[in-house]
């Protein structure tokens, strides 16, 4: 087991996200789903956070709210000086465009575009992006740039998705079950990439998973249950991704 560095005793810097009293209620027909029931949370610059919890615990809802894809029913979410709960659709779009990188469980690549072009989808609209080639080399796909998604393995596709999300040099990287569709070996490769991005680019990183093993690589592990934070703890030491076993 490789320990990367000792856990910080205190937050490494000021909070990037400040979440207070956030609830989220969905209505589907006559059924009311209370996805979040009051979340308070601070996330700090460069922090690596793993959100654990069973299906329906509210992880994805929280991630979507942090990413500006959704707005809470009540409560406040601040990203630096943005109040995400008060922003309109256009402002949220701008926020996503400028600050957030997403990695999805099912990659969500454009099947009609090559790896390089998929990354370019993001670099086209970013202010000071990495070159797509550079982003792809960063995830170890320098030699597969002209392949279409259908010509790539699941792990490679997820690495393209990661390259795409980091190419704009986002302030936060939000990953929803990035290894959920992958086998162990490939999953670890993908986690290594995320780990490297967090370390080398200092990107605040949040990973949702219900694979508890992944929690070992985090600075902080937050467990959600039934729309609430059930527990939160700091790892004494982060375990390198390549040492994970599940």
């Amino acid at each position: 087991m490789t320990v990367i560095r000792p856990p910080p005793a205190a937050p490494p810097s000021a909070a990037v996200f400040v979440v207070r009293g956030v609830t989220k209620v969905y209505r589907t027909g006559e059924v009311e789903v209370r996805a979040l029931r009051g979340i308070d949370l601070d996330l700090h610059a460069g922090e690596f956070v793993v959100l654990l919890g069973p299906s329906g615990s509210g992880k994805s809802t929280l991630l979507n709210i942090l990413g500006g894809l959704d707005v809470p029913t009540s409560g406040t979410v601040r990203f630096r000086d943005h109040d995400l709960t008060r922003e309109d659709e256009a402002a949220l779009t701008r926020y996503r465009r400028e600050h957030v990188g997403f990695v999805f469980q099912f990659y969500n690549l454009m099947p009609s575009l090559t790896a390089r072009e998929n990354v370019a989808v993001v670099t086209d609209i970013a202010a000071a992006p990495l070159a797509p080639e550079e982003a792809l080399r960063l995830v170890g796909l320098g030699d597969r740039m002209d392949n279409f998604p259908a010509q790539l393995s699941g792990g490679e596709q997820q690495r393209v998705a990661i390259a795409r999300s980091i190419a704009k040099r986002p302030d936060v990287l939000l990953c929803d079950e990035p290894t959920g569709a992958l086998d162990v070996k490939t999953g670890i490769t993908v986690l290594e990439v995320i780990e490297r991005i967090n370390r080398e680019l200092g990107t605040t990183t949040v990973i949702i998973t219900h694979n508890a093993v992944i929690a070992g690589m985090a600075d902080r592990v937050i467990t959600l249950s039934d729309g609430r934070i059930a527990s939160s703890y700091r790892n004494a030491a982060r375990i390198a991704a390549q040492s994970l076993v599940w």
Binding site: L69, T93, R94, R96, F104, I125, S165, K168
Partner: peptide, 14 residues
Amino acid sequence: REQIAALKAFGYTP
């Protein structure tokens, strides 16, 4: 659908 959602997530405007 999912491609559209992803593009929106990356900050493409409606």
